[in-house]
């Protein structure tokens, strides 16, 4: 039985090649093999959302993706999204609204929230709540997060209108 698989993929815009353990999920791989500790494990059974990262452009549960399956994949984590500046406005809104307290859910929450900005640029508060309802936050009352996402949606809409 082969328990190590060679993969080459793109992580945060950089090409990386590793031999990974087949029992590693994507978050184990990011944290353990690449030192990208921004994604967190909260349950490791796909419910809490703390491990949410972007795979081939879409948010996924990092704990429900085999690292071994990622040859050729494109992965973006909170570190990459921070460096690229893609969600700078969202991050600033999270800080301004106090939308993170302990911060453990925050990277996953941001990846999900970034998806709303693309998928539903005119989302209502209810739709924002629905979209993030797979990401568990124990500290905030979720309201500050909804406020922050709503702020960014409005700001981006205003920007589009102005352009």
């Amino acid at each position: 039985m082969t328990t190590r698989i060679d993969i080459t993929l793109t992580v945060n815009g950089e090409r990386v090649s590793r031999s990974v353990d087949t029992r590693s999920h994507l978050v184990d791989f990011l944290r353990g093999d690449l030192g990208l500790a921004g994604a967190h494990t909260g349950c490791e059974h796909g419910v809490c959302g703390a491990c949410t990262v972007r795979l081939d452009g879409e948010p996924v549960r990092g704990c429900l993706v085999m690292a071994a399956s990622l040859d050729g994949a494109v992965v973006e984590t909170i570190e990459g999204l921070s460096d690229s500046g893609e969600i700078r406005d969202l991050q600033e809104a999270f800080v301004a609204r106090n939308a993170c307290q302990c911060g453990y859910c925050t990277p996953g929450m941001l990846v999900t929230a970034a998806d709303i900005l693309v998928q539903s640029p005119e989302a209502t508060r209810e739709e924002i709540r629905e979209h993030i309802s797979g990401n568990y936050c124990r500290c905030t009352g979720y309201q500050a997060i909804v406020d922050a996402v709503e702020d960014v949606l409005k700001a981006r809409a205003a920007k589009r209108e102005a352009a």
């Binding site: 039985m1 490791e44 059974h45 796909g46 549960r61 704990c63 429900l64 993706v65 085999m66």
Partner: peptide
Amino acid sequence: LAGGQSLLATLAFRLSAPSTLIDIT
């Protein structure tokens, strides 16, 4: 192994222990 959203969770419960996962995606 297709999407794995149930299968991989059951691995984390150690409820199943396949010898090999064959990825059909």
